[in-house]
């Protein structure tokens, strides 16, 4: 081999090393996290089909990651994707494996999220007692806001399910204690729209429509994470408006209606009972005219 060729080969060697080094950095775990985060963004924007595809990709990449090397985070992402896909048993196994690998001290966020994921899987495998204790623990102990939101949602849902199964006379005390718990959360983070949304949902079960209306409006003003929750909150506002409109009289009714009109103008709603995103507006406007 002559000298110039050898120099070129040496040059190519350095370049190849550089590119391999760069390419090797794009790991399966990174791709799994990328697909999972993307899936969450799509789910927020109500792009359910795209979100499911992303969660499937996240699961495949995470499965490849756990084959290559065993770290708790790869199992965590696999489990979270499986939760989104409704594969409860697989998710439960993934979270079990994640805890077997163990999380480092710097991975406190991952540990809390895995604990929530495990509870969510257990809940769907009919172990609601154990999952409830984990949700309570996370709601009281976790310092991570995303985990608090997730735990709060499950606690509210579980408490409401319990309330709907009990006698009407016993419901009020249970709902009041749930409302107090939410008030505590709101007190800690007044600017979190989701906590106000939850408070509005609980207040409507107590038939406290004024409180529910106020909390729902606050939630809308502070902003909610997903389009689905936002629309649900809008329908809650409309329902409370309908109830209050029927129960108030005289000056109180006039004041309430005037303030409501100001809000819906701000939100650019075409009518008091028609949010801006409604497609079948014509029919509902006719219904409003009938009212």
């Amino acid at each position: 081999m002559d000298m110039p060729n050898r120099s070129k080969i040496a040059g190519c060697f350095f370049m190849i090393l550089g590119f391999i080094g760069t390419a090797a950095c794009v790991s399966h775990l990174k791709l799994a996290k990328h697909h999972y985060s993307r899936g969450m963004e799509q789910a927020r924007a109500y792009r359910t089909d795209a979100a499911f595809s992303s969660f499937k990709s996240a699961r495949l990449e995470a499965a490849a990651a756990v084959k290559g090397r065993t770290d708790a985070q790869s199992y965590l992402v696999k489990g979270m994707a499986e939760l989104e896909l409704g594969l409860w048993e697989d998710a439960e196994e993934s979270f079990r494996n994640a805890f077997q690998q163990g999380f480092s001290q710097a991975e406190g966020w991952a540990s809390d999220l895995a604990l929530f994921g495990a509870a969510r899987a257990l809940e769907n495998l009919e172990l609601s007692g154990a999952s409830r204790r984990i949700y309570d623990h996370l709601l009281d102990q976790s310092r991570l806001k995303p985990v608090l939101l997730l735990a709060a949602e499950r606690v509210v849902e579980a408490d409401l399910a319990e309330v709907l199964d009990t006698e009407k006379s016993q419901r009020i005390s249970k709902l009041q204690s749930l409302q107090k718990r939410l008030d505590k959360l709101i007190g800690k983070d007044m600017a979190c729209g989701y906590f106000h949304y939850l408070a509005a949902q609980v207040a409507v079960h107590r038939e406290d429509y004024r409180r529910s209306f106020e909390e729902a409006v606050t939630a809308k003003e502070l902003g909610l994470l997903s389009l689905e929750t936002d629309r649900d909150n809008d329908l809650q506002i409309i329902f409370c408006y309908d109830r209050l409109e029927k129960s108030l009289t005289g000056e109180a009714l006039e004041n309430f209606q005037a303030s409501y009109i100001r809000w819906i103008k701000k939100w650019k709603w075409p009518g008091p009972k028609t949010p801006g995103w409604k497609t079948d507006r014509k029919e509902e406007r006719t219904h409003e005219a009938d009212d």
């Binding site: 985060s37 949602e153 509210v156 929750t229």
Partner: peptide, 30 residues
Amino acid sequence: LVKRRKDWKSKVMAWKVWADPGRIRLKPDA
């Protein structure tokens, strides 16, 4: 290369992913 790979690995491990809370499905009869 060694430094880069270590940096990348720690970046990937530090990337936090979260699930979003959903809407409340249980509504009152009214």
